[in-house]
């Protein structure tokens, strides 16, 4: 647990000082929202709003991939990753600390992106804000748990920028399907059906447990 808190504290402090990951992710997701707005026929119409959940999750997933790739790249500078690998704890705690840090950074980016999204597509997200936060959080736990795990693997490969999406995207697919279905239902009816939520909870738990168990191998050389 100490290791988890130490990694979380270090990652958030480093990001607060540099802000490089959050700014890059934010610019990228905002750009996507703006492009979606101008590329869809008719701008903010009822028809285009039907695409909103999918578009929102596309922006979220690519922003996540961008941030996750960087989360281990900073460990390569000065070979700081060796310090993490040598920690005398189950390495799962180290990975979990990084997962939570990634989740918080992504959460900040998602919140700002959702505000821009609501503005651009003229949608009032306030009445469903709590439910939306819940769905996005569940989806993001899935993205960040498996994403952090694969980022740790990809960082030691030569083509790490390509490797992370290649490894993570197949595992993102079920999360994205369930999360966009839940978001779609939320936008249309104002409530979330239990089925996709149940699926997200099971997927998140599976990804977290498997990442924790296999973490001992990913930080090895």
């Amino acid at each position: 647990m100490n290791a988890l808190l130490a990694v979380l504290w270090k990652d958030l402090l480093t990001e607060w000082r540099s802000r490089d990951r959050a700014i890059a992710m934010l610019l990228f997701s905002m750009l996507m929202v703006v492009i979606f707005h101008f590329s869809l026929p008719g701008g903010a119409t009822t028809a285009t709003r039907a695409y909103a959940p999918g578009l929102l999750w596309v922006a979220y997933v690519f922003a996540a991939l961008l941030g996750l790739g960087r989360s281990f790249a900073i460990e390569l500078e000065n070979d700081a990753i060796e310090g993490l690998a040598r920690a005398p704890v189950d390495r799962g705690w180290v990975l979990l600390g990084k997962t939570i840090a990634n989740l918080l950074i992504l959460g900040f980016v998602q919140a700002v992106t959702a505000c821009i999204f609501a503005l651009v597509f003229e949608m009032d997200l306030l009445p469903i804000a709590l439910e939306l936060i819940g769905v996005v959080a569940l989806g993001s736990i899935g993205l960040c748990s498996v994403g952090t795990f694969f980022a740790a693997i990809a960082v030691r490969t030569r083509l790490r920028e390509v490797m992370l999406p290649l490894l993570a995207l197949p595992f993102y697919t079920p999360v994205l399907i369930a999360a966009s279905r839940a978001t779609n239902a939320l936008f249309e009816t104002g409530s979330v059906p239990f089925e996709p939520i149940q699926f997200l909870i099971v997927t998140d738990a599976s990804y977290l447990i498997v990442s924790f168990i296999l973490s001992d191998f990913v930080l090895d050389e």
Partner: peptide, 27 residues
């Protein structure tokens, strides 16, 4: 304890914070 080729330091953190991180990580 391992002291490698590279320093293993985080440039965004101060000297005290780098040490504190290592201390917390190793309980």
């Amino acid at each position: 304890g391992f002291i490698g080729h590279a320093t293993g330091l985080y440039p965004e953190l101060t000297a005290r914070e780098n040490l504190l991180f290592a201390a917390r990580l190793r309980s």
